[in-house]
Design a binder for these strands. Structure first.
Lengths: 391, 391
DNA sequence: CTGAAAGCGCTAACAC
DNA sequence: GTGTTAGCGCTTTCAG
């Protein structure tokens, strides 16, 4: 199975390599007639450009690197990740790009991979998830000169683009909703506080509660179901337990449900639960599914002291712009914030407004040529940065 | 940020490019002394080989291609996929390889990607999941000359290696267990029958039931929770409903639980549920979690006619070699079958026995240098094939 | 043990 | 419009 090269094409057509190359790359310098013949032959012979050869002379790649620093075991449990992946893939699909993926738990290893992939020209740039406080990556990638898009929190290096989630707005929504239901004491079960977006949530939830004169108890956990259950259990076992909690992801919300059940309490009767993420877990673990609802009603009398009539709804939802619909496992659509700083791309500002369905992860953009998902969208950023950086 | 090349290293050390190359690649032809100096300098200058240049002259890549043909939306809901991914990544991590990933729903597109990635030298080979009856990929990849490992079912092309799941054994285990509990009529809610392994399950479950003189009703579904719920609902609504069902994945088992609840029936009282996969969903949606168990007991009397005392356990488990432990959401360890045909790798037979923990996806191998997961393991196959193919 | 040189497949000046 | 040529960074003969 001998590889077909442009030299082969050139030979068979009696042309030179360069003419063939021009034709293939849709560049001026060849007649339409010639171009057609080249294209046809290439098709017939099933020619494909050698990606290494092309990368070697172009010094660029159409591959985007993603290094996920999480325990693979735990990752498989977290719906968020696959949604991110699917979003990126949706975009890469249309751009005919590719994703180079690595999952590792080891921070040292992670940094080594960034260096290696970049220095070995494997990728055009990176997408970075899960930004930490004191995250070494902004500095590392800047020093390497590698384009990168940070997702979820602004990079500490202002020259790097990022896509933000409206954390503050979410916090406001969640706290506001629970306050409206009459709760006076909220629990906040946050994810790892080393994560920037968790720190933001910590602060903004606190601020929203303070503004309304609500009591707030914060407990940190690690995003796992087990630890969420532990944390919520701690809250429930206090003499002054909160009547509602907010968890940082759905997995911990499921943990919350289990903590409630384990204590023979009910939700939302004894504890209203609201969570960030609105993944499919909300559909799977639906406390309302019959005869569960009836069941709750029956159990409630057993602990009348703990039963609360204030909260009749379980806000199983997240990142919603409007108030969560009571007892709904669907999140309404929301409008995300403009996602980039226009300064970053002087030649072609990329500010845009996305209409985002958080449940499906898909977005509509006011720039019609752009992607179909929030993370697909930042996938697009990379090549663009490449263009504006090396003019 | 100028790239560091071996020419740079050679210059600074007063050597020639070739010597440097030899030293770097651990090849004979340089003194130990020289090798050390080269290695040290490379380290100091943070040199990394250009992957494209290397691939260009080597005509090989350390990247493995994975094209997943599923609806991305649905994928995020299916724990199986991320476990596969994590398994491969675990192996790639140690091999310092990389995964080129593409998720697409379009079969035509899928085949185009295989061609393109192969002809453009992007990957060393492929791992193929979800083999269909009449799957075009074995033929396609053979005709391209691309190494590929098929997972889950034997390729129709016997020259291609594959990693099998012990489907027949699983079927036997599941049916046997339910029969032992006293069930006489089983339902089998299978996944898409176009998938080879589902066809195998269909046949082997039927055979196992027949051998025991059990009745069996098969209903096909699409692996989604909703469709699983629909299918189980259909079974439950029949006048002669089965007392136990087997579903093809956990998501459909969750659907089954919901179908049961929606009819105010109980599980396992009215319907025992057993499923292939044993993912984390089993932990999340645990019908036994208190006060659920008590709840079941209370509900049962409401529909005494439907309540069965035969089944006291919910076999929420899968792919177990021994009988499932009653009411356990953990699968015991199992021994997988030898995974490859020794004929396939004449130079270096790769037959090995894996000890596999199906819950974590990790395996122990009797070939100690080998991988740590079943899919990591087939990741390893690719380069090995490469070696034996181009001697 | 070392150096010069060819070539992997493609792009991009630069001449014709 | 078309052909010639010089790299891109690395590997690999083949002489010294």
């Amino acid at each position: 199975m001998k590889r077909v090269t442009i030299a082969d094409l050139a030979d068979r057509l009696g042309l030179s390599k360069s003419s063939v190359s021009y034709a293939l790359n849709d560049r001026p310098g060849v007649s339409d007639e010639t171009r057609r013949r080249v294209l046809d032959l290439a098709d017939e012979l099933d020619w494909h450009p050698s990606s290494s050869a092309r990368a070697l002379s172009n010094k660029r790649s159409d591959t985007i690197g993603l290094v996920v620093r999480r325990d693979p075991e735990m990752l498989s449990t977290e719906p968020f990740f696959v949604r991110v992946l699917a979003g990126m893939e949706a975009e890469l699909e249309r751009a005919d790009g590719a994703l180079l993926l690595r999952i590792t738990d080891d921070p040292e290893r992670e940094r080594a991979i960034y260096r290696q992939w970049w220095r070995s020209d494997r990728v055009a740039g990176f997408i970075c998830l899960d930004q930490h406080v004191d995250d070494p990556r902004p500095r590392l990638l800047t020093s390497l000169g590698a384009p990168a898009v940070f997702v979820g929190a602004p990079s500490t290096d202002p020259s790097q683009p990022h896509v933000l989630s409206p954390e503050a707005e979410d916090s406001e929504t969640l706290v506001g909703h629970l306050a409206d239901l009459g709760h006076r004491h909220l629990g906040h079960v946050g994810g790892p506080i080393a994560l920037s977006h968790e720190r933001i949530r910590h602060d903004t939830v606190a601020a929203a509660a303070r503004r309304r004169g609500l009591r707030l108890t914060y407990v940190g956990a690690d995003y796992s179901k087990a630890d969420g259950q532990r944390a919520v259990g701690e809250l429930l076992d206090r003499p002054d337990a909160p009547t509602a909690i907010i968890t940082g992801n759905d997995l911990m919300a499921v943990g919350a449900v289990h903590a409630v059940r384990a204590r023979r309490l009910t939700s939302p009767g004894d504890l209203a639960i609201a969570a960030w993420d609105d993944s499919f877990l909300c559909q799977l673990v639906d406390p309302r599914s019959p005869p569960w609802t009836a069941h709750l009603a029956r159990w409630a009398p057993w602990r009348p002291g703990r039963s609360s009539t204030r909260s009749r709804s379980l806000a199983w939802c997240s990142r919603t712009a409007g108030p969560p619909r009571a007892c709904s496992s669907r999140a309404p659509r929301r409008w995300a914030e403009p996602a980039t700083d226009p300064d970053l791309l002087p030649t072609e500002p990329v500010q845009c407004i996305l209409a985002c369905d958080d449940r499906t992860g898909s977005v509509r953009s006011n720039q019609p040529t752009w992607g179909s998902s929030p993370l697909g969208w930042c996938t697009r950023l990379i090549p663009r940065l490449g263009v504006s950086v090396s003019p």
